[in-house]
Computed example of a mutant assay.
Amino acid sequence: MPRILIIDDEKAIRNTLKEILEFESYTVDQAEDGPAGLDLLIQQKYDVVLCDIKMPKMDGLEVLSRAQTIAPDSAFIMVSAHGNIETAVEATKKGAYDFLTKPPDLNRLLVTVRNALDRTKLVSETKTLKKKIGKTSEMVGDSAALNAVRKAIEKVAPTDARVLITGPNGAGKEMVARQLHELSARANGPLVEVNCAAIPSELIESELFGHEKGSFTSAVKQRIGKFEQADGGTLFLDEIGDMSLSAQAKVLRALQENKITRVGGEKEISVNVRVLAATNKNLLQEIAERNFREDLYHRLSVILIQVPALNERREDIPALIDKFLKDIAADYGNKPKKVAPDALKYLQALDWRGNIRELRNVVERLVIMSDDTISAADAKAFAGK
């Protein structure tokens, strides 16, 4: 449940805000001044902080500045009865999410809090994703096929060109997208991933573009879509070939105009997003069968990167197995196991239809089922071939 902190020297204001927010099912704490608020921020994680500007002992702007170190992920909404443009600008420069004047309009307050919560969630998701990226985005191997992909990434990443990444399932298309983002000028911005195949067709537009409260039966509150979440960064549309035709039309418009409209909304929202897409399908065949828009294909495929199947780069299998052994040992808190040469030769010769994803699963199974050294007999017994 979202947790909110109210910092205000006026008890009546604190109690009123607390009552309103608790009615919306938020957990709310209070502090009567800046130092007390900072103490609570040290002790407890808050998603949103409503902070008065004019307070004794320490004004709200100083609280905001100090909170950037103590609680950098908390979204600050500054509140003041003496609001003016200069104060609002200064608060924003110091890192405030928004600025409200007293007494705050109820609807504006609730919408601002909801949007701030969405922002806090996005920051958390982005940090989690970046941690995953740091662990998994290394491209392992030195085959000619893989080096060709690396070379393409190095050339394309610094640009804002859209990239269509193709290749079989499990070959590492997501890793290519992550490297394109990491090596781009947008690396400090968010990388937002959407698996188009995992989202029902009736929900994909809401997922991508967001929706307004009441736009459909289950839309109980406003939602920010993935395009807005990725503003200033990269949007990765995985399995783009499974996107519905109606959603394709809206994505095409967003790419043409750099603007989106939320479901149920009328306002156009400008977005600054680099779009990367991936698919395991033959999109030219999908176009011929009228399952995919040709104009969208040409918008997405400014650059094409084909990720090779693992069977096309067998010389990389020993290095991949070594990496997986180390990663799995780190996850389990054990020492990495060794692989006997004949076991390695056996694994290298197998047909890896599931590609790198299948190889990792097999290595984890072997780690669990074998002794300190994985033998050829272990590989034959547990590789599942």
Rank of each mutant, 00 (worst) to 15 (best):
R274Y: 06
R274D: 02
R274P: 06
V275I: 11
V275G: 10
L276W: 06
L276M: 09
L276P: 10
A278C: 10
A278L: 05
T279V: 06
N280T: 08
N280V: 06
N280P: 00
K281T: 10
L283E: 02
L284N: 15
L284K: 15
Q285D: 15
Q285I: 15
A288T: 04
A288M: 08
E289A: 14
E289G: 05
E289N: 15
N291Q: 12
N291P: 03
N291S: 14
N291Y: 01
R293H: 11
R293P: 07
R293G: 03
E294V: 04
D295W: 09
D295P: 12
D295Y: 14
D295V: 15
D295L: 11
L296A: 03
L296W: 02
Y297Q: 07
Y297E: 08
Y297R: 08
H298T: 09
H298Q: 04
R299C: 10
S301H: 09
V302L: 13
I303S: 03
L304A: 02
L304G: 05
I305L: 15
I305H: 04
I305T: 05
I305F: 07
P308H: 06
P308T: 04
P308Y: 05
A309D: 03
A309R: 05
L310A: 01
E312S: 07
E312D: 15
R313Q: 02
E315S: 00
D316C: 00
D316Y: 00
I317P: 08
I317R: 01
P318G: 04
P318M: 04
A319L: 03
A319F: 00
L320R: 01
I321N: 06
I321S: 01
I321L: 07
K323A: 01
K323G: 00
F324L: 06
F324I: 10
F324E: 01
F324G: 12
L325M: 10
D327R: 06
D327E: 03
A330Q: 15
A330F: 04
D331P: 07
Y332G: 05
Y332E: 09
Y332N: 14
Y332D: 07
G333K: 14
N334T: 10
N334W: 08
K335E: 11
K335Y: 05
K335F: 04
K337N: 11
V339N: 09
A340H: 04
A340K: 04
A340L: 06
A340N: 14
P341R: 06
P341S: 06
D342T: 08
D342N: 08
D342V: 04
A343T: 15
A343W: 07
A343R: 13
L344H: 11
L344I: 12
K345T: 05
K345F: 01
Y346M: 11
Y346Q: 12
Y346P: 12
Y346I: 08
Y346W: 13
L347Q: 10
L347M: 12
L347H: 04
Q348M: 08
D351E: 10
D351R: 12
D351C: 13
D351Y: 09
